[in-house]
Design a protein around this nucleic acid. Sequence first.
DNA 1: CGCATTTGATTTCATCCTGAAACAAAAGAA
DNA 2: TTCTTTTGTTTCAGGATGAAATCAAATGCG
Lengths: 390, 390
Amino acid sequence: MESSDARLANRAAVLNELLSRDTATRVTIAVRTGLSKATVSRVTDDLIQEGLVRENGPLPGSGPGRQALALSIAGEDKYVCGVDLGGSNTRFLVTDVAGRVRAWAREATPRTATTAETARWLTDRVTALVGSGELHVTAIGLPGAVHPITQSVRTVPNLPQVAGTAFTETVAAALPGTTIFDNDANVALLGEVTAGAARGRGTAVMISIGTGLGASVYLDGRLLTGRTGAVGEFGVLPYADGTLESVMSGAGMVDRARRLGFEVRDAVQIFDRGEPQAVLRDATAALLSMVTTLKVAYEPEVVVLGGGVAPRLAARLDALSWLLDDPTPEPPEIALSTLGDPAGAIGALVAALHCHYRAFDIHTPDLGGVATTLLRSLPGEESHVPAPSA
Amino acid sequence: MESSDARLANRAAVLNELLSRDTATRVTIAVRTGLSKATVSRVTDDLIQEGLVRENGPLPGSGPGRQALALSIAGEDKYVCGVDLGGSNTRFLVTDVAGRVRAWAREATPRTATTAETARWLTDRVTALVGSGELHVTAIGLPGAVHPITQSVRTVPNLPQVAGTAFTETVAAALPGTTIFDNDANVALLGEVTAGAARGRGTAVMISIGTGLGASVYLDGRLLTGRTGAVGEFGVLPYADGTLESVMSGAGMVDRARRLGFEVRDAVQIFDRGEPQAVLRDATAALLSMVTTLKVAYEPEVVVLGGGVAPRLAARLDALSWLLDDPTPEPPEIALSTLGDPAGAIGALVAALHCHYRAFDIHTPDLGGVATTLLRSLPGEESHVPAPSA
DNA sequence: CGCATTTGATTTCATCCTGAAACAAAAGAA
DNA sequence: TTCTTTTGTTTCAGGATGAAATCAAATGCG
């Protein structure tokens, strides 16, 4: 199938318009995209033919004149899935291709399982959540560097069974449709850029402080992964007599506290107690150093702090008021993740949607509208599996 | 003037073909670009109408058949200029819009002059070198961060008189055509990417170690400047008890050596003597640290070392064989600048050419051919001013 | 109730651009 | 001179767009 360049751009424009508003007609699309009514009509007809768009009933008109036909994204039974496979918990999110939520879940990750068992567990959960729907794309964020070409996974201290290509290949083989993998920090940032703290920003950086330490970079409208997917592994950089990760990651802080003779369960506890002070002070200083490096490296508009420890760290940052003596003319905003823990699953879902439409040569730069309506359908419950349909 | 998208792309394809080969005909262009003969003919006629392309005499044919008409970039009298305004020396390079060298010069920068005097000095030199030609674009690299929108210059310890907007505005007002400014490390990297050590690479990073310390980033085919032009100022990052710049820049090394009681003229002398060892050791370690940071931040295909000290440092790097124990799966190549000191002027000239053609909506992603032929016309002489033409 | 008005969607038509193919031009070879 | 070969132009069909005319359907007013 070969089509002209302009045609593809117009298809994308029409479809993006449909994705961002929940109700649209041919005329409103023409006005918003700047295309002529004729072109919109033709493109729309094509999209309907291809099954990407559906003509709903007539829209009740407000004034005189013919009733407009409501258009919407078709494919209530075509599903995409976003997964955030974490070191301790895993979140699943299933929507149709318009981003309408179908099911979600949050479960403990089987930490001691083998590669095959973990893969089986994950695909079983996805299959169960998808139910009778037709799964088109699954995007999985996981705590390791994912090679963008080979999909091989590296450096996974938290979840060693997914390293290499065995896990990704097994999962991809067991799931219908396309399966893509990416670093969990990357998909979390994609979530924040699409619908969270970095919404609408052209360039943003996210520091994810969980068990480990990760950074991810969104530059001029694209996630920066690097040739091997290792971009953002700032945790390995030397700091003091260790690495940044050893000082400011959750595991690193707990480790240091224990060596000082403190009994601690997790990093959050350290913050809540305010002890050991040395660990807290060093972690804050390390974060400061990391933000400085990120600033020089990318000049982001905003630095998003994410992960379980982030809210506590942010409070300390404010106390230091380090932003005030920043000599940079236009310093980045510092923001907390607004999506919180589900950011990864939401970002993975956004990646899955991008992937789905890319297969139709449709570039979907802004899924902000989709993601926002999606957010409203996600209450705090742990999981939701739809009743089996007839 | 409004034109279709495909038309612009084809214009660009034809013109890029002409820029990269010194001799071309309509048929060879059609073959190389994949366009049809008809389209090439039409586009070429347009370009000739606009004065961008010229039809030269018939090309002596090798076999039977009609003689082909040679085409070439028009505009022998339309000039562009690249300037590398350094802390101690300034290089000028003037070519026509096809990159054919017209004049060049290297002079000591007037360090104690005022802003107005420096601007006057620079514009006088450019005007003299341009002579009777028609200057279209001047690109100037200077040792400071240049705000990409306001063109305001920041952080210029080496050349304080160009800070702010006074210098850039004065120069732009005094020179005909368009004048653009950028950081000197950025234009040097543009030179290396176009015709030097990073030729043809999609992503590359350059560390420029001169009096000061600068890094520049070329990512996926574009120079990364950041919102305010401050991307790459890794020199300000803290290192040991100072900053990276204080440890591994030329000025910083000299300063540290003198504090240790050594009498040194410049950093090169420190390397040649091999003393003070502490200064050398720290500088090497700092470079190592910087390369590690750059690797994590961008995963470049190649790291280019430039600036006067670079060759000496590179020798030490080899001795450390630090590349061998690099745990990264695909570590970047480390390369010395192959353009050397003129890299900045060449890169500035490339930027000027890009700018010139961009005004015609023609994107020139690869000026490698132009820059290479340009290199051959640049012998080691200090300057060359053309004889005044009638 | 009939008809003008208004708004939505489609169709028609002029325009622009491309590529394939036919055609014209020019040079060398037999 | 005539044929062959290569270059460059012209012609024509095929897509695609936008403006405008046209068709379609709903409201409101006399």
